[in-house]
Amino acid sequence: MRATVVEFLGSNCDHDMIYFSKEVLKFKTEVVWYSERDLKNPDVVFLPGGFSYGDYLRPGAMASRTPIMESVIDFAKKGGFILGVCNGFQILCESELLPGALLRNKSLTFICDYVYLKAENCDSPYTKKINKILKIPIAHGDGNYFCKKETLKELKDEGRIAFKYVSPEGNIDEKWNFNGSLESTAGILSKNKRVLGMMPHPERACEKILGSDDGKLIIESLISFAENG
């Protein structure tokens, strides 16, 4: 597959995403700068995590208003695959490609830890091959997912909640919902289920030596979907 990683001023997980795409997934990977407009014809766009614009104003706010995001929005409208991780998820919400917003963690502190994820709907391009509880790191200060009641209902009815935070055994439990997200929501999908935003970092769980390679499953699902539908 062909992937494009978008870099914004201050992004700090861009290198990790490029490494993940190029070296782990062996995708043909392009890197584009926030001020450009050409996405270079990808199958999937990766919006990396990590403090674009220093998280000043609101995380993702300024990145969502850059030239490249206009192209990303067009790409989404045409049914392109987009994965936004952490700050990338915040950017997707700020650009209204996904509903809701990411508020400050309930602890009011940054949290770096492993979380456990359960795929809520196994018919999306990103979850169809997932058959286990995923162990993936989080590292954020603003990951507390919020949306209006009606939106939440819509997300649920349409099977657009991709991942929930669960205990290692797979149970919903506030204790394991570190950031206080609405109904333990860790990741959500667009209406056509081709845009995924999630707070946990699959690219940080891509090799056994790093403690987990569960993150790969999400993209392996996507590859299988893209190849077989």
């Binding site: 990790d16 770096c112 590292a139 970092h201 940080r204 790093l210």
Partner: peptide, 27 residues
């Protein structure tokens, strides 16, 4: 303390706080 620090960014961390030493691999 250390859960307030990002320990896994740059995807090199092999051992972190709580180990006898911190270790990063070189890609």
């Amino acid at each position: 303390v250390y859960k307030q620090y990002d320990q896994s960014v740059r995807t090199n961390t092999v051992f972190t706080s709580g180990s006898d030493c911190g270790v990063v691999r070189i890609k």
